[in-house]
């Protein structure tokens, strides 16, 4: 391998880490600074008196608390729906041979629906939700995110199912279990870590999603945290402290989740193509 001396390697890695983290840390400081300190020149990285006033302002005075609740409900409901529907589909595709390799073709077709740029379907889906009277509702986002996460769930869970030897289920079925009984009692416990990781990925994807939320929810009652934040960024007068506080709150659960699924991160991001 390339033999860079450790003396050279550590500074480079440290520099990369600094570049990755410093901007995020900067947002964190802005969310905790009094306004005078926010505009200080040169910038105050460490020495300032922290305050929680922006968090109070954002989540108690303004509507960010409400956006937070909406984001949570939408992410949890859509993840649940996608997991239930997708896991059953994945099981069928992993365990049954359909005629003319239909199972393979279906799997790839399901994956390909995931590849469309979201903006392409934004117009028809907006019109669909408008005609259904679902604009500015949480339900519209739950429905869309379920569809959005479904290919991901199918593809991930199919991979996890294929890794479990069939013999284990067959043994259970010989002992008198039905197919779905074997799925529930034998297979699902074995893939539980993968299922949990897939669920966390779905939560992250739904929580972070912006375009559809922007297009479909424009009222305070229905908008998610990212849309609420974006609305404030593009206003003429920007409240930097409030923005940053909201940004920090939108970020923290995701980072915790991401740490929890680190082991599966590569697999999730490459839709199972690279198994890290």
């Amino acid at each position: 391998m390339i033999n860079l001396r450790p003396l050279l390697r550590y500074p480079l890695v440290a520099l990369a880490t600094l570049v990755a983290l410093a901007p995020v840390y900067w947002m964190l400081t802005i969310s905790l600074k009094h306004e005078v300190d926010q505009f200080a020149v040169p910038p105050l990285w460490f020495s300032f008196t922290p305050t929680l006033e922006h968090y109070r302002d954002a989540f108690l005075t303004r509507n960010f608390g409400h956006y937070l609740i909406t984001s949570t409900i939408v992410a949890v409901c859509s993840t649940f729906c996608a997991l239930v529907i997708g896991t059953l589909g994945a099981y069928a595709l992993a365990r049954f041979q359909m005629p003319r390799r239909l199972d393979r073709k279906l799997s790839l077709w399901i994956l390909s629906t995931r590849m469309f740029p979201p903006i392409v379907t934004a117009v028809p889906l907006f019109l669909m939700m408008r005609d259904l009277g679902l604009l500015n509702t949480r339900a519209s986002l739950v429905i869309l995110y379920t569809g959005f996460n479904l290919p991901f769930v199918v593809w991930m869970m199919r991979g996890f199912f294929l890794e479990v030897p069939r013999e284990l289920e067959e043994a259970a079925m010989v002992d008198g279990d039905s197919r779905l009984g074997a799925l529930r009692r034998v297979l699902l416990p074995l893939v539980a870590p993968g299922l949990a990781a897939t669920a966390v990925f779905c939560l992250i994807i739904s929580w972070n999603e912006f375009l559809f939320a922007l297009v479909l929810t424009q009222t305070d009652a229905a908008m998610t945290l990212p849309v609420g934040i974006a609305g404030r960024v593009t206003q003429y007068e920007i409240k930097w402290g409030v923005m940053s506080a909201a940004g920090v709150v939108a970020m923290v659960p995701i980072l915790i989740f991401a740490l929890a699924v680190q082991k599966y991160l590569v697999r999730g991001l490459s839709l199972g193509a690279v198994k890290g």
């Binding site: 880490t17 990755a20 929580w207 972070n208 912006f210 945290l225 934040i229 940004g247 991401a258």
Partner: peptide
Amino acid sequence: RAALLVPMMLPTVVAGVVWRLMLNPNFGA
């Protein structure tokens, strides 16, 4: 490795906010 992954996991909107703050001509870092 965990530290390097932080930017990628951020909601894109939050990444946008982070850099609005960093790149602000007057008081950005």
